[in-house]
Amino acid sequence: MRHAAILRLAIIAAIVALLELLSRSGVISRFVAPPPSEIAVDLVRLLTSDRVQAAIAQTLSKITIACGAAIVVGTALGVLIHRSRALAQTLSPYFGAYYAVPIYAFYPLMIAIFGIGEAPQIVIGFMLAIVAVIVNTINALDRIPRVLRKTVAIYGMGSIEASWNVYLPYAGPYLATGIKLAVAYSFIGVIGAEFIMSRIGIGHEIVFAYNNFDNEVMYPLILFVLLVAGTINGLFSAWEKRLLGRRSRS
């Protein structure tokens, strides 16, 4: 296990070193990408200046709202849908197709309903994230063995109590997958919406920098988003691993 972690870090380090080398030696032109070390330095400079701080705060708070709402509402809907086998089965292909739908096309509709401002971007992040949570909650609840359902009957629990005290705790580690996806999709939704039509936010700053060939802002910001998303993802993975560790004999 440790061995694998070290090897993994070594591979990442090797890739970064290779990029650095290619960039410094001019194989990758500076116009395409600056060397990683410079991106890191630029990121520190960018974060300490107040050039993008407002944008970052804006984007992260929108993502937090979208993601939190998606997790709460998605889990509740997942529990509800899972109660009817026929419903879950019928909806399955629609969930499968959902991620092929360009949600951004509904942006004008969102503006018509929620007004201009931040709300439409939050709603898009929410809409992208919620289906991952629903699908994953249903999958997690499918894993519950029959004997646990019988046990619930033995204790004479109502369906809400059973969901809260038995089914969700049992499914807990498997729900983490959905939460991780919700984080990723709310990033995609919010930042993607900012890409298209926003005057503020990280997505807007990245597009603005791209259009002005401003690599000193664009690459550090991309790196920043990847680092934040990666860190959150890593934290949830660690939590998932801890919960699963209790379940398996090792």
Partner: peptide
């Protein structure tokens, strides 16, 4: 063991942010 976490984290990154790099 080495590769799976890399795959999973790459999967869950917002790929839309790297689109400018793909374009370049």
């Amino acid at each position: 063991e080495v590769g799976e976490p890399l795959l999973v984290s790459f999967y869950s990154l917002p790929k839309i942010t790297v689109y400018p790099i793909v374009l370049l």
